[in-house]
Each structure stands twice: as structure tokens, then as C-alpha cells.
Amino acid sequence: MIAVENVTKTYGRFGRRARALDGVSLEVRRGETVGLIGPNGAGKTTLLSCLLGFLRPDSGSIRIDGRAVDDLEIRARTGYMPERLGFDRDLTGSDFLAFHWRLSGGDPARTDAEVRGAAARVGLEPAALSRRLRTYSRGMLQRIGVAQATLGDPDLLFLDEPASGTDPLGVVTVRDRILEAKARGATIVLNSHQLPEVEKVCDRVVFIDHGRLTRSETLTGESASRRRASIRVAAADGARAAQVLGREGLAADAGPDGLVRLADAGPAEVARAVKALALADVGVLEVRSSAELEELFREAPPS
């Protein structure tokens, strides 16, 4: 378990001090995937850096499974991908992954197999492994960054914008690797601005703003926070659909594109809405249920 207790971190000295973290407390249970969400400059990367021991909190404490964050036993179980990928550009992809495999304490005899396997899992062609990293596109660098972080199946993963700059297939690949790690019980802390992706992989999200943890929303399980359903009907049927749902006692908001939004809708409300629309001969084209992280992100933090 990751336990962050009342952590404060300030940058700068004397008159030019900026508080990046202000009394942050957070627990991440073993096997949980937690997303860090917040605007630029909110303190997400600072928190991640404190979790990895690159920065020391001014006050408060961080323990991972009861140990210090820079404990080598913890590091041996850690995978990390930084936001900025400026690593050894003169190394080949193969050299880079082999270096990290050996550094993580992996069996040298298995280096080639592990390197090939890790590259294949993120969709990197074998030919790409013999090329220098300076020739890689941004998307390829992101992929090899993820491959590096997941080498040796670590049970602690810290990912900072892992899918940033990748093409749609790359986004899916990164998501699959995260879900794969999650399935084998890894504890994952994900920092990402890609809210739909965060929602797809995270069990919980925490909102950070001005260095403070303003909100925590559970996305999965029985304790999941409210969800919002979107029902798409033909554009011409939008207003009528909202009326039908209103008669059913469901607060609905129809957009001009035929997208009808249901606030605070659980599975039972969605089923009622679809049934009501079907009985009223309103064709349902698509039903989506999500936590609407974007909406939550825009909202003012709860008191």
C-alpha cells in the first residue's frame, strides 16, 4: 500500500517560493489503479516525483508497504515512465531495454527474450529495436518508454502521461499494457490529461489543484461515484426523447446533435430510460455510461 500523509513541498527559496503540494494525504491500496487529475501546474508530477523519491517532501511522510520510497527492495518492484522522454538518444532501442532489464535485476541470460517480448507487447517492430532512439517518432518513444516501465512485470507502476503523443493504436496499446498490469495485481499511479483513458483503466481518480487534493472519485465497484449516461437518438428526436424521459421522472438534457444526457444515472435509471424511449418509438442509436470526468474536472471542488 502507498501511504501519503500530509505531504507539503515547496519550490524556490526566499521570496520566490511556490507551494507545489500543500498537505496532500492519499492512500493507494495494493492492486488499485489511481489516476491523478488536475490542471497544468497542479502538483501531479511533483507528487509522482515524491512517490519515487526524486523529491523530498518538506513535511509529511510517504511509505510504500511500510518502507521508505527509495528503499531498494521497493525499487526492485517499481516501473516508472517519465513525462519527458529525453533518454539516451544514441542508444538503440534494444540496448536501451536491455540496459533497463539488467538494471532492474533481471536475469542476464533472458535479456534478449525479455527485450523482444517487451517490444512486441507495445507494438514495436523487431527492426525498430536495432535503430537508435534519436530516429524514433514521439509515438515510438512513448511505446518504448512503456515497454521499459513494464519490463519484468513490476507490481508498482508510476506512469506520467504514458499515451501522450501516440496515435490511436498506440493509445489502445498503452491502455492494454496498463490493464494487463492491473489484471496481475499491480498497484498503478497514473498521471494523465487523457480523461477518457483514465476512466477506462482507473479504479479511482483524485483531483489535485494548487497542490491540494480536492476530490476523490471511485470509478468502479459498488462504491462508485455517480455516473452520467448519454443516450444518442436521431437529431430530430432529441427534444421528444427529453420529454419522454422527463415524464418518467428522469432529468434529461437534450443537445442539438441528438445526444441526451442523464445526470446521476445508475444502471437501473439507464434501463428505465431505454425502455421508455423504446415504448415511445424513439430509436436509440447508442448508450454510454461514464463517470464524466470532464464534467467533474470542470466542477468546483466539493467543500
Binding site: 516525483s49 519515487l52 523519491g53 526524486f54 531498494l72 527492495e73 525499487r75 526492485a76 517499481t78 516501473g79 516508472y80 515512465m81 517519465p82 513525462e83 519527458r84 522522454l85 529525453g86 533518454f87 539516451d88 533497463h100 538494471l103 532492474s104 535485476g105 521499459q148 508510476f158
Partner: peptide, 15 residues
Amino acid sequence: ASGGALQMILARPIR
């Protein structure tokens, strides 16, 4: 340090 390579290395089990 500026490129992020050091951070990746220091996240590994080395002093």
C-alpha cells in the same frame, strides 16, 4: 537529469 534518463535509472534498484 534534464532529459529524464536519470529519473528512469534512479527508479531502478541501484544506489
